[in-house]
Write a protein that binds this DNA or RNA. Structure first.
Length: 632
RNA sequence: GCUCACGUAGCUCAGUAGGUAGAGCACGUCCUUGGUAAGGACGAGGUCACCGGUUCAAAUCCGGUCGUGAGCUCCA
């Protein structure tokens, strides 16, 4: 069949001359950026390599978008080279919503340089340079990039396997080592925005030189770019670092980097979350404990933290001995378990704790509430016999489900299996992994397997929650541990009178409460559901005449556990409503002369506005019902 | 920790060529008592992150420290 290819296009079979490109086909879609032929994404102007089904890739397809962004990265590199011919190129991939290119420059970029680069890029777009693919031998490739003094490119070429095709893409005077595919010409990239600059190690390795990473995004049209920038702006408005202080929930100060100040409202929110967790766990047989937060170094040596975690701990030296502030609760719980002779009748023993934990996170990694040095977990350790593992894991997964559903978060499970450097008995590992998988299947949970990513002491399930913006957050972790019971020589007396070794299950559902709260702030954009809201009701007297009536209402609300405030400032009602609305308070109870006479409250909800006068205290009972914790 | 950027009142920001600081909101006092998203007047508030240097003079120029941001790295 030499000389002919059999294609299926738009469901219709036809044959074409070999050497034919997708560009040549009369069926070519106007907005096609690249072409898909049986699993391979190709340049439009590259000769079709094989027979197969043809699909057009546009900006609306993930792969099409990747091609578009990748070509944008080349465009960026070309502009940089025009402005700084001595710049050395690293790599420049496409991202989910943009692209970047790493370059090594003699001088750091100045303010205004981004705009300069952007202008140069637009110029190249205007030139509408054709983008051509070139295939090179290894020697040709090395010679070409050596001539251009592209030392990083040489390193890349040296790493390419000997049987692989080496290709480069040329646009005008610019050429870049690249496997492609790319757009047909630079003119397609109509809208460009360079967004930020940062440092990045060459090949992501700390020992390598630091390069300048230039981020940008691009679209086929200005409208799409504008829309994208608006979305980014929306996300910024939800940023918990912005919303938190403006809703008077928490703040950070230079005096304590990595530790939050919880304001009265934020603390209330925090306590509500903790109480929610406490009630769910209490119903499931958990017992809350409080264990020491500073231990002598010997404990950390025994637990293995000293070897693996010392650099991340706050250490104190007093009376010529070293003390460590706890980064985790597990050793404390192990000691507590060990404090008495335990019977099989005590198992499963579920110890929960919310006390403070500290980790000396590297300064550059701190990030609002998401990454702090002082935090609290909804932590628990389950001491179980081997035949209780399944049932307990099942229980924990059930709790995850209830907890996340309460916040409208969906979740996904990642199952991490035995790593190469595992410790302990292989048979036990196999059994545990089989158990876990069975449980996941029984619950009908969708899960991904992360081979060899378990902890060295046992396999684990990590759970990622998906928030209202579709972002994934790794929150819960459930880990089977065979090692700590060994290290602490834990045992219980079994029914047969023999000492047996328990298994520990480490688990946290919300994970760090600080982080969880940060995520909730962004998930709800600060508009918390009634049961969570720190202030559930603001009572707004219209004139001073109604202040005592308002206070009477507040006392009643308070007695039934509804958190409320009376806004008795001498301001107009509209002003108070505006402030309550901006503070995202779920309910406003307006009380004027009419209400006082008729014994009503005029209700305004945060989401629906004015819903009219309601008889009091009927509305109190409605509120009590609506404000219940979603425990079921 | 590393690279780059940034750091002016509680918050958002202005501050032209180096000549001892300004607005809006918030806050306080007074006036106003108004039925569903901003009533008015007056007032208080800053060692311009901190330390040092250059200069007759530094918020402004230079160096260092701390913090924050975007990333990198790390993340039992």
């Amino acid at each position: 069949m030499a000389g002919e290819l059999q294609l299926v296009i738009d469901g219709e079979a036809r044959s074409v001359q070999s050497g034919c490109t997708a560009w040549d086909l009369p069926e070519r879609q106007e907005h096609a950026l690249a072409v898909w032929v049986d699993g391979q994404v190709l340049d439009l102007k590259r000769a079709l390599p094989q027979s197969g089904t043809v699909q057009w890739l546009t900006f609306n397809d993930f792969s099409g978008r990747q091609v578009f962004r990748h070509s944008s990265a080349h465009l960026l590199a070309q502009a940089v080279k025009r402005l700084w011919p001595e710049a050395k190129l690293g790599t420049g991939p496409a991202l989910d919503d943009g692209f970047y290119y790493d370059v090594a420059l003699a001088e750091p970029l100045q303010e205004g340089d981004l705009a300069r680069i952007e202008r140069e890029m637009k110029k190249i777009v205007g030139e509408n340079l054709p983008i051509e693919r070139v295939e090179l031998s290894r020697t040709e490739a090395l010679t070409l990039f050596d001539q251009r003094a592209e030392t990083f490119k040489r390193q890349i070429i040296e790493g390419i396997p000997h049987d692989a095709v080496i290709s480069a893409y040329r646009q005008g005077d610019f050429i870049d080592l690249c496997s492609g595919p790319h757009l047909a010409a630079t003119g397609l990239i109509q809208a460009i925005k360079l967004t930020s600059v940062s440092g990045a190690y060459w090949r992501g390795n700390e020992v390598n030189p630091m390069m300048t990473r230039i981020y940008g995004t691009s679209f086929p049209s200005e409208d799409e770019l504008t829309q994208h920038l608006v979305h980014i702006e929306d996300a910024k408005q939800r940023d918990h670092r912005k919303l938190g202080p403006s809703l008077d929930l928490f703040s950070f100060r230079e005096d304590a980097p990595g530790f939050a100040f919880w304001h009265p409202k934020g603390n209330q929110l925090y306590r509500t979350l903790e109480e929610f967790s406490r009630r769910l766990q209490h119903d499931r047989g958990y017992q809350e404990v409080a264990t020491p937060w500073i231990y002598r170094v010997g404990l950390w040596e025994r637990s293995g933290h000293w070897d693996h975690y010392r650099d991340d701990m706050f250490l104190i030296e007093r009376d010529s001995e070293v003390l460590g502030v706890k980064p985790m609760n597990c050793p404390g719980h192990a000691l507590l378990f060990k404090g008495a002779t335990r019977s099989y009748r005590d198992l499963p023993m579920r110890l929960a704790e919310y006390s403070p934990l500290s980790r000396f996170e590297r300064s550059g990694t701190l990030h609002g509430l998401m990454r702090v040095r002082g935090f609290h977990q909804d932590d628990a350790h389950l001491f179980v016999s081997q035949d209780q593992i399944s049932q307990e894991m099942f229980g924990v997964l059930d709790l995850v489900d209830v907890m996340y559903r309460a916040f409208g978060l969906t979740h996904e499970v990642v199952f991490s299996t035995r790593p190469d450097n595992y410790m302990g008995d292989l048979a036990l590992w196999n059994q545990a992994e089989a158990n876990l998988e069975e449980i996941l299947r029984d619950r009908g949970l969708k899960y991904q397997i992360n081979p060899k990513d378990g902890a060295f002491y046992g396999p684990k399930l990590d759970i990622a929650a998906i928030d209202s913006l579709g972002r994934r957050w790794q929150l819960a972790t459930i880990q089977l541990d065979f090692q700590l019971p060994e290290k602490f020589d834990l045992h219980y007396v079994d029914a047969d009178g023999e000492f047996k070794r328990p298994v520990m299950i480490h688990r946290a559902i919300m994970g760090s409460l600080e982080r969880f709260l940060g995520i909730l702030v962004e998930h709800y954009a600060g508009a918390f559901p009634l049961w969570l809201a720190p202030v559930q009701c603001v009572i707004i007297p219209i004139t001073d005449q109604q202040i005592s009536y308002a206070q009477e209402i507040q006392r009643k609300l308070s007695r039934y556990g509804i958190r409320s405030e009376v806004d008795d400032r001498s301001q107009k009602m509209g002003y108070k409503i505006r402030e309550a609305q901006l503070a995202k308070v779920p309910r406003m109870l307006v009380v004027g002369g009419r209400d006082q006479t008729n014994h009503t409250v005029s209700v305004r909800t945060r989401d629906q506005g004015d819903i009219g006068a309601k008889p009091w205290p009927d509305y109190l009972h409605q509120l009590i019902e609506e404000a219940e914790m979603p425990l079921a």
